[in-house]
């Protein structure tokens, strides 16, 4: 494992922990899109089916379990926790799941490395992860005012994606036959979706003002 991959995993982990910590300590999920969180739970549930079939490493297994448990916990908190759920702004978070899930699934049926259930689910999870942030970005645009933790959450997710791209470049030059078009293209699309957000994030950071997105 290279340094980019490890740093990518750690920022990914940090993003989830920041979110859980925010929800757990201030008992609020204001500004967080339940739709995005449900899509991430679906992403992990479909991608990590190999937990039952392949063993890669202890690190790999533990991280997968952490992502599964944390993503489902976040969804549970927002939907069912008696205090947290009151802060969920249902009327603003209107993005439809199937708008993203259905095209991703159809695409996975057509473009995949192997036509098996496990492989199609894995490919589906890659496509879905690429676009799962969209409901969150729409919500950010709508509410405009973003609290620090929500901003940091999206920033950490973007950092994770960027580091994964560096990881792929590194692996391409250091490992023989490391060519994965499906992973790369969906990963690139995913990272590009953050570009706009990043622009405003850095502007507000540079000018030392609270992050606000244009309407």
């Amino acid at each position: 494992m290279n340094i980019f991959r490890l740093a990518g995993d750690m920022t990914h982990l940090a993003s989830v922990l920041v979110l859980l910590l925010k929800i757990h300590t201030i008992k609020s999920c204001a500004g967080i899109s339940l739709k995005t969180q449900e899509l991430y739970a679906l992403v992990f549930a479909t991608r990590y089916l190999d937990l039952f079939t392949d063993y890669i490493s202890l690190y790999n297994t533990l991280m997968k379990l952490i992502f599964l448990v944390s993503s489902f916990s976040i969804v549970w908190y927002i939907r069912h926790h008696k205090i947290v759920r009151r802060s969920y702004d249902k009327d603003q978070d209107t993005f439809r799941h199937y708008f993203l899930v259905l095209p991703c699934f159809l695409l996975a049926l057509v473009i995949n490395e192997k036509f098996t259930v496990k492989e199609i689910m894995w490919t589906f999870s890659l496509y879905l992860e690429a676009v799962a942030i969209l409901p969150q970005l729409v919500l950010l645009q709508r509410t405009r005012n973003i609290d620090n933790l929500t901003g940091q959450y999206v920033f950490l997710l973007g950092a994770y994606r960027s580091l994964y791209i560096l990881n792929w470049i590194y692996r391409y030059f250091t490992e023989p036959h490391y060519v994965h078009w499906i992973t790369w293209i969906s990963g690139l699309v995913q990272t590009l979706l953050y570009a706009d957000f990043f622009y405003y994030y850095f502007q507000s950071w540079k000018n030392n003002v609270k992050l606000e997105l244009p309407a």
Binding site: D9, D50, K64, F67
Partner: peptide, 10 residues
């Protein structure tokens, strides 16, 4: 060709 090398990623 090890076409599964990306599977060790998260």
């Amino acid at each position: 060709v090890n076409s599964n090398s990306a599977k060790d990623e998260l």
